[in-house]
């Protein structure tokens, strides 16, 4: 029996990833369960899903508390969610990250696999939906499931072009995945967002070009988080509260605001 926990954000496809893994296992004649954890999930908020692969009569119905593998679809999530909780000592982390495993800071010597799933998703799908890319990494790092099975599961999920580009994401991630040992540290420094903040939902952040900003206040009017302040008649965004929705970019009449990938700032 192998047990897998997936962490992601609403919209990245963690639930679909768990479904695809269970399907791939099923295609290899194994019994599997794909378990989404439903609460108040919505776009951007942390989401957890689980997969069990093994014998049919060992399939319990509780959640997974001591996983063999933890798969993380979001590159910043590990700063706010305790992703190693309950992970078995010989367990492995499969992370969406643009840095090599040796630069990942952990308390325990787990095996770590990293892949820039966001970069691959943007390249192949044109949007930061990282579920299929991270599965390519899972296959490469663990060897628990065959690449062909995952590709077949992806093709069953999406027909036509959508299926093809997702297969490309799986394959590109499979090639790019690195496995290694993490940097062991005494304490992992997390980022704690202020109460009521949705800042950890961001995949992209809006950046204002102060030269172009005319101070018209349209972004200030439309920002749903009220996190834009006018300083000297220019828009200044409070990133402690900005959730990265991009409405300000849409509303700006002079194109002074641009969305930039969060991972571009060295995570």
């Amino acid at each position: 029996m192998i047990e897998i926990r997936l962490h992601g954000r609403g919209g990245q496809g963690a639930v679909t990833a768990s479904r695809l893994l269970a399907t791939a296992a099923f295609l290899e004649d194994k019994h599997s369960q794909s378990i989404p954890m439903y609460g108040t999930e919505r776009r951007g908020a942390p989401v957890t899903a689980f997969v069990r692969i093994g014998e049919k009569d060992k399939m319990v119905r509780s959640l997974i508390h001591e996983p063999d593998y933890v798969v993380v679809l979001d590159s910043l999530l590990r700063k706010t969610v305790n992703i190693t909780e309950g992970l078995k000592d010989d367990g492995m982390l499969i992370l969406n990250s643009s840095v090599p495993p040796e630069e990942i800071e952990l308390l325990k010597p787990y095996k770590v696999a990293t892949v820039d799933a966001t970069g691959i998703a943007l390249e192949t799908l044109g949007r930061p939906i990282t579920n299929t890319a991270i599965l390519g990494a899972f296959v490469k790092a663990t060897g628990e499931i065959g690449l062909e099975s995952v590709i077949e599961a992806v093709k069953q999920q999406w027909k036509g072009t959508l299926g093809e580009i997702n297969v490309k994401a799986v394959e590109a991630a499979y090639e790019a995945t690195e496995v290694g040992d993490p940097k062991i540290v005494a304490e992992v420094v997390g980022e704690k967002a202020p109460a009521g903040s949705r800042a950890d939902w961001r995949t992209f952040r809006p950046v204002v070009d102060l030269e172009k900003c005319t101070g018209c206040r349209l972004c200030w009017v439309y920002c749903p988080e009220h996190c834009i302040e006018m300083v000297d008649d220019k828009s200044v965004i409070d990133y402690a509260y900005c959730k990265g929705c991009g409405i300000c970019v849409e509303e700006c009449p002079v194109g002074a605001i641009e969305m930039k990938s969060e991972s571009e700032r060295g995570e």
């Binding site: 479904r19 269970a22 399907t23 019994h31 599997s32 369960q33 794909s34 989404p36 119905r61």
Partner: peptide, 12 residues
């Protein structure tokens, strides 16, 4: 059938 536990769990 138990909601969530069965309603949303996929298996063969």
């Amino acid at each position: 059938l138990d909601g969530y536990i069965l309603s949303y769990t996929a298996e063969p």
